[in-house]
Design a protein around this nucleic acid. Structure first.
Length: 193
DNA sequence: GATAAGATGTTA
DNA sequence: AACATCTTATCA
């Protein structure tokens, strides 16, 4: 039995469909703010408000798709609305959702969420969030437009344009000047530099 | 508070 | 050798 800590659980949740992810990657990353990341583990559903994202596309060298289709990057070239989960620094995972269209390697990285349900709190960074929600490479390639995979996104709350901050991405050296990171202003769950 | 270094395994 | 990170230690 899940403990209810937020009235969000009472409203009927709408799952984001594939057309949401079919826009330009920077738009998808921006639009993801205020949406709800959902993870079902052993019947319990964990929900978190997305508060920080980044965009990556095959056109710039920091993206894993930059060098074309490889064993790691192939999910990025599949249809939009799939989970792209990769291992980083040998011990962590990061979660992206594929964007745009099949054949174009691109995704939006979810860097931080604000917990909306009980029993998880350590979510202010991409790898910590994955650890808390047990997101590993087993979920690479799953469809997040339905609940079957145990990982999906739902409609959340609207975020006004004035509360969205756009800046440069974190932790990369290449194409570091691109302002492709988005976060909700003054939200305490946003990761630190 | 800030900064530095170590853990760790996959990738091209 | 570099890496879309995080934690701990060591300063101040």
């Amino acid at each position: 039995m899940q403990k209810k800590i937020n009235s969000y659980n009472k409203i009927m949740a709408k799952i984001l469909k594939r057309d949401f992810y079919s826009e330009e990657t920077t738009e998808v990353a921006r639009n993801m703010l205020g949406k709800v990341l959902c993870r079902e583990i052993n019947g319990a559903i964990y929900r978190g408000l997305i508060v920080e994202t980044e965009a990556y596309t095959q056109d710039e060298p920091s993206c894993h798709a930059y060098n074309g289709i490889t064993k790691r990057s192939k999910t990025l070239f599949e249809k939009p609305g799939l989970a792209y989960v990769y291992m980083t620094y040998g011990m962590y995972h990061c979660l992206n959702i594929t964007t745009e269209r099949e054949g174009f390697g691109a995704s939006a990285l979810i860097r931080a969420i604000e917990p909306l349900s009980a029993n998880f709190t350590n979510t202010n960074g991409p790898a910590k969030m994955c650890r808390e929600l047990n997101i590993t490479r087993e979920l690479n390639g799953v469809d997040v437009t339905n609940r079957q995979s145990g990982l999906w996104l739902e409609e959340g709350t609207a975020v006004e344009a004035e509360n969205i901050v756009q800046t440069t991405r974190i932790g990369i050296k290449l194409a570091a000047e691109l302002p492709w990171r988005f976060y909700i202003k003054d939200n305490k769950w946003v990761s630190k530099k």
